[in-house]
């Protein structure tokens, strides 16, 4: 099949790039409350790419993200972030994390939140104005966070994750509750950041957002079902619609004897 030729191409691309992958996971497992939340996840992500982490709620997206930023307990298997074990002090300056619920102080203003987290991360305050403009919150800088809308709070949280120009951004559902215009603007921002060499892992359960990503990791029940580009995934399912493609993949994976669980890099990782 054509897959073999593309596979070798992907391997070649990996050999040519000297730097370690932004994220490398090998048989990563996490136990949470007696249940295996991640059941042997393996993948590798190149730098400077927007990677969509998709799947139904409860499939392990957040657990995987927490493992990547080093706050998840009981992680087994091998997990490398920018060539280092997750959560080591040297990495914490290079990784930005945005939790699902906006983790900012509701009783402080937007600017006070940013100033505080900037101090904690050792970022000069001169950067703050640019950052506020990036997330379109310049006009709200002096408003208290609890007076803002849900979408605005999410952007305050995002701005805090962007502080200090991290090389890896782990964003848990950053576009939830945003209107289409803002969502588009944020995806454009993610694209710009990726073009500048930042790797972004962005989770979402809105399949529609998948088309903005360079690569997709489709998860279900603690496993990676598929890791590919949006177009390749759609083509594989014989559909133009990504949502249909996902449904088809999920259905085929839940059939007995099906073995669509994959590992490694996407088949056409080099062809962006």
């Amino acid at each position: 099949m054509i897959g073999r030729r593309v596979d070798s191409l992907a391997v070649q691309v990996e050999l040519e790039t000297a730097e370690p992958p932004a994220v490398a996971a090998e048989d990563v497992r996490v136990r949470r409350g007696g249940v295996e939340a991640l059941r042997g996840v393996s993948f590798a992500l190149g730098t400077g790419r927007v990677v969509g982490l998709l799947g139904p709620s409860g499939c392990g997206k957040t657990t995987l993200m927490r493992a990547l930023v080093g706050v998840q307990a009981r992680v087994s298997g091998r997990l490398g972030v920018l060539g280092k074990p997750p959560g080591v002090p040297a990495l914490r300056r290079q990784v930005g994390y945005m939790t699902q619920a906006p983790s900012v102080y509701a009783d402080l203003t937007v600017r006070q939140n940013l100033t505080y987290f900037a101090a904690v991360r050792g970022v000069p305050h001169a950067e703050l104005d640019g950052l506020l403009a990036k997330v379109d919150l310049g006009a709200e800088a002096h408003r208290r966070v609890d007076a803002l809308s849900g979408g605005q709070r999410a952007r305050v949280s995002l701005a805090c994750a962007l502080l200090g120009e991290p090389r890896l951004l782990v964003l848990d559902e950053p576009t939830v509750g945003l209107d289409p215009v803002l969502r588009k603007r944020l995806w454009d921002l993610f694209g710009e950041l990726a073009a500048g060499g930042v790797t972004l892992i962005v989770s979402s359960h809105v399949m529609d957002e998948a088309r903005h990503c360079d690569e997709l990791l489709l998860m279900r029940e603690g496993r990676v079902l598929a890791h590919d580009t949006p177009s390749a995934l759609a083509a594989r399912a014989g559909s133009h619609d990504l949502e249909d493609a996902f449904l088809a993949l999920i259905e085929s994976s839940s059939m007995p004897g099906a073995s669509s669980v994959e590992d490694g890099s996407p088949r056409d990782a080099g062809a962006r």
């Binding site: 706050v71 002090p89 991360r121």
Partner: peptide, 13 residues
Amino acid sequence: RTGTLERLLTTPL
């Protein structure tokens, strides 16, 4: 509860 502790723990602090 708000997750700010988790965020702080992912920083160099």
